[in-house]
Design a binder for these strands. Structure first.
Length: 422
RNA sequence: GUGGGUAUAGCUCAGCUGGUUAGAGCGCUGCACUGUGGCUGCAGAGGCCGAGGGUUCGAAUCCCUUUACCCACCCCA
């Protein structure tokens, strides 16, 4: 554990079960999302810093203190992406894929970067899988997005009853500003009963005060005005429709009027999936919402948008807590062994042929004893072991041993594939 | 950015109030079984006890510093 060459703070190598878990989840995502008509989109790991300051919002913690920003050799200010929605929208604007009211459904998977103090379920380089639906403004689109996220988690193996789906509406340009002022006024009114941070939020981002975990603040906020009661008619109707669609789809949700996403771009529908076990002090494994103003903030034409991101590491923790494991997944059908070094060339050749025919085959390349070769075959869970041995090979045959039943058959090397039923 | 904890073999960890060659289990390699895996028995390899400094006749053990990791606050996925 020399610390000379360790991965930087907050980063980790995806190795063993974690690496397999990542492949499993990205594969699952591709399968599930494609059934909803989603296509892959991969954007750069770094972007112009301004994309994030404009897109996510200057007042957010993510932009204010968590970005990995650097200057490149050309003097440009670049930032490692702290999230991917702004990039996807930028890419969509650049490629003009939402021209003339066309919709686009896109998903991605990859690392994000935030300069935070690491802890369980939170690292500086972390992996997200996400989806964005662009150019769709109907409540049906919202419901479909939420259902897809729920579907993904279920498909990945998290028991539905261990998850909790929270849904809320944040209003839009017509109703949120007034509500925002109302909350700010409420905070000022109760200033002496609230913590410092809550007071500070009155000026920066009043809604975030709902996230405060301080018990006494929560108590005060229990009587705060709720956006739910202040929504404009359009937002209220939209929200009600989303909820009834979720209900009809049998996706259990909880209305949480205090759910406030931390990024400035959200409008109307916001949602979050939480679990109670395995995540330490975190509890959100995925979340997202609608961002109808983001295109314009980034210089595009008014276009609605909607999406979610889910945290890979947290999802993995939740899966582990549910007893899901990612065992070594090598698929070895045959182990080709030699009883004498004389046959190593033949064995090597057979293994090569089998692999070309789509059969998983292992052959010893370390000069091990026959016994050691059997052990390897066993550890690889090979279903069969083929043995090149003097007596049998003198008749042009090799031994095919079924490792489970211990039955052995003699066949010509060319018939091995048939003998193992592959 | 602010707290608390931990650091000994590939992995999980013992090592009491300082005492001589630093241990166990699992894993790995070999042998018993020279052409047949799992079980068993035996043997072996693998450690500058995170790093640096100090106290001491003597430090994995005590003190200081440092680094890393973990956990929590905060924030979010």
């Amino acid at each position: 554990m020399a610390d000379k060459y360790t991965a930087p703070k907050g980063t980790t190598d995806l190795i063993g079960a974690q690496a397999r878990g990542w492949e499993f989840l990205t594969t699952t995502a591709r399968e599930v999302f494609s059934h909803y008509g989603y296509e892959p989109l991969y954007t750069p790991i770094f972007e112009h810093t301004e994309l994030f300051t404009r897109g996510i919002g200057e007042a957010t913690d993510v932009v204010g203190k968590e970005m990995y920003t650097f200057e490149d050799k050309g003097g440009r200010s670049l930032t490692l992406r702290p999230e991917n929605t702004a990039s996807v929208v930028r890419a969509a604007i650049n490629a003009n894929i939402t021209a003339n009211g066309q919709a686009a459904k896109l998903y991605y998977a990859g690392p994000m970067f935030r300069y935070e103090r690491p802890q369980k379920g939170r690292q500086r380089q972390f992996y997200q899988i996400g989806a964005e639906a662009l150019g769709l403004n109907s409540p049906e689109a919202d419901a479909e997005m939420i259902i897809m996220l729920w579907h993904f988690f279920c498909q990945a193996g998290i028991p539905a009853d261990s998850m909790r789906l929270l849904v809320n509406s944040m209003g839009d340009g017509a109703c949120r500003p007034a509500y925002r002022d109302k909350v700010a006024a409420f905070i000022k009114e109760h200033g002496d009963e609230l913590c410092e941070e809550c007071n500070a939020r009155a000026n920066t981002n009043p809604l975030r005060a709902f996230d405060c975990k301080n018990p006494s603040c929560r108590e005060v906020f229990a009587s705060a005005p709720l956006l739910k009661d202040e929504l404009c008619d359009e937002c209220a109707e939209h929200h009600a429709r989303v909820l009834s669609l979720l209900e009809a789809a049998g996706v259990p949700y909880v209305e949480d009027p205090t759910l406030v996403r931390g990024l400035d771009y959200y409008t109307r529908t916001v949602f979050e999936v939480q679990v109670d076990n395995g995540l330490g002090s975190q509890n959100a494994i995925g979340g997202g919402g609608r961002y109808d103003g983001l295109f314009e903030s980034l210089g595009g034409k008014p276009t609605s948008g909607l999406g979610f991101a889910l945290g890979f590491e947290r999802t993995l923790l939740a899966l582990e807590a549910s007893g899901v494991t990612f065992e070594d997944g090598s698929s070895i059908d045959v182990y080709v062994a030699v009883a004498d070094d004389l046959y190593r060339d033949e064995a090597f050749k057979l293994a090569t042929e089998l692999r070309r025919n789509d059969v998983g085959a292992l052959v010893d390349v370390a000069g091990k004893s026959l016994k050691a070769q059997f052990k390897q075959a066993d550890h690889a869970s090979a279903r069969y072991t083929v043995i090149f041995a003097p007596d049998e090979y003198a008749q042009g045959k090799v031994v095919v041993r079924n490792m489970a039943t211990k039955e052995e058959r003699l066949v010509a090397p060319s018939e091995v594939q048939e003998a193992i039923g592959a």
